[in-house]
């Protein structure tokens, strides 16, 4: 399903366990992680995850709130957005 793809972007100071912590949330909600990339921007760590929530056991809003909560406990900033916004904005 095209509109079941989401992009999770996480910003913050690099530390051990970020990928594991976010992945645990995804596992709990049966969200399929399709792709992961990471980079550093100035001194910040930035991680991108492309996920599919089409077969998840909860809706977008519950999954987003769980990810936000987890990121907050790690003192990371997180954005959870439907992938379509990037597709529309950056392609003709």
């Amino acid at each position: 399903m095209k509109d079941s793809k989401i992009i999770v972007t996480i910003f913050g100071a690099d530390k051990i366990g970020i990928v594991a912590a976010i992945s645990q949330v995804m596992e709990k909600y049966e969200v399929n992680i399709e792709d992961i990339s990471q980079t550093t921007m100035q001194e910040y760590f930035v991680m991108f995850m492309m996920c599919d929530i089409g077969k998840a056991n909860a809706g977008f809003s519950d999954i987003k709130n769980a990810i936000l909560e987890k990121a907050q406990s790690l003192k990371m900033e997180v954005w959870v957005q439907k992938k379509e916004i990037f597709d529309k904005m950056h392609s003709i």
Binding site: I7, T9, D35, I36, S37, T39, M41, V46, F48, M50, W79, Q81, K83, I85, F86, M89, H90
Partner: peptide
């Protein structure tokens, strides 16, 4: 291969 452009994502968020 990563199939989306991270620069696009960063630009949108920015």
């Amino acid at each position: 291969m990563f199939n989306f452009k991270v620069d696009d994502i960063l630009q949108t968020i920015n």
